Computed example of a mutant assay.
Amino acid sequence: MSKEDTRYDASHIQVLEGWEAVRKRPGMYVGSTSERGLRQMVFEVADRAVNEVLAGRAASVDITLTPDGGVRVADEGPGVPIDETEGAGGPVLEALLTQMHTGVGTGGRHDVTIGFCGMGPAVVNALSRWMTAEVRREGVRWVQEYARGVAATPLTKTGTATGSGTTIAFWPDADIFGATEFSFDGLEERFRELAFLNQGLDISLTDLRRPDEPRSVRLSFPGGTRDFVDFLDGHTAASAPADTIAFEREDPRMAGVMEVAFRWCNCPDERVQSFANSRPTIGGMHTVGFRDGTAAALTAYAREQGLLTPVDPDFGADRIGAGLTAVVSVKLDRPEFEGATRGMLGNSEVRDCVGQAVQDHLGRWLREDPERAAAVIDQIVQGGRRD
């Protein structure tokens, strides 16, 4: 190997300026350049609008897939501020859409991050060939346009406005994504989750890409996690031997609130979904606590009623799943996620908090409805014998 081959100096370092880094490595910011990445772009723009509703400043969020391949996200909140802000070098609106990590949320349990990374709408702007923003605020309509992350026009007053709100529309850059076909079903699935997990959230999703086949859904679920369990059960709900057990409890030990709903159906499958601050999780301390509490309550009741013989072992957390449908959601001021994908919740105190709450509520239900309690325990016992 020659000296030329092994030489390493400043000429080997590539410096990317502005939005070039995002456009050159888009997968680092939205996950991929496939449909999954396109879906993430919608979530990054909708984040702010969803949190406006959760904060009580807006009533609903409207998301529209337009015939020309764009996406429009609208809310009727107070409108993004348009005045100059110190350190941003321009209006708040322009900073929000051209500077990474410029947000309006406070964090913690009261804010929702829809996607997996929370990079913000500026990244979407950088990966779009065109973006438009309209703000209706204090009786005035303001408009600004952007191209590939850079303001193409100044923020312009275009007349009077009726009401207030913000509408952001974007068109993904085909040079980056190739095919730019959004999945209506994929968007609907995630927005439905959010509506289940956040009572009071009202989201409409409309597809106008095929004028002869328009499609629209409205997602709002006053029953919260209880409605979520009904949805997961689908047609099997009618054969449930147990009513849905649902509760919400705040626990200062974990600096947060838990929302849990579950029941057993006459089927062998287990459907347990978990969330932390409205993010889907593959497991963690909240699910461990849920299983611990469920197993403890069932074991204690079964022994009290003689439904387990003295030689029968306690119900383990691995035996309670036959026919179980559950949604376990926690919202914490300081969530601690394990790993870069943030799929596991690591807050150790959550395990005991959720476990005790589930044990209390399930134990009470078992004592109040002994006939259905016996049916659930028999189902679990029989399932264990089949295993």
Results as ranks from 00 to 15, higher is better:
E4M: 06
E4G: 02
T6V: 14
Y8D: 06
A10I: 15
A10Y: 11
H12I: 07
I13F: 07
Q14P: 00
A21F: 13
R23A: 04
R23Y: 07
G27W: 06
S32Q: 02
G37P: 03
G37Q: 08
M41N: 05
V53F: 06
V61Q: 05
G79N: 04
D83A: 13
L97P: 07
T106V: 14
G107S: 03
R109L: 08
T113R: 12
F116I: 10
C117M: 14
A122Q: 01
N125Q: 02
L127P: 10
E134I: 15
E134P: 12
W142D: 01
G149N: 06
V150L: 10
A151H: 01
A152F: 05
L155P: 10
T158V: 15
S164N: 12
F170E: 02
A174V: 15
T180V: 15
E181W: 02
F184V: 09
D185W: 00
G186W: 10
E188L: 11
F191R: 02
E193R: 10
L197G: 01
G200C: 05
I203W: 01
V217Q: 13
P222Y: 11
P222M: 12
G223Y: 01
T225I: 11
R226T: 14
D227H: 09
T236S: 14
S239P: 00
S239E: 12
A240G: 07
P252L: 04
P252K: 02
A261N: 10
E270H: 05
R271G: 02
M285H: 09
T287Y: 00
T287M: 01
A297L: 04
R303N: 11
L308V: 04
P313Y: 06
D314T: 10
D318P: 00
V330N: 13
R334Q: 13
F337N: 00
G343Q: 13
M344C: 04
M344H: 11
S348I: 10
E349R: 13
A357S: 13
V358P: 11
L362M: 01
L362R: 06
E368F: 02
P370R: 04
P370C: 03
V376N: 11
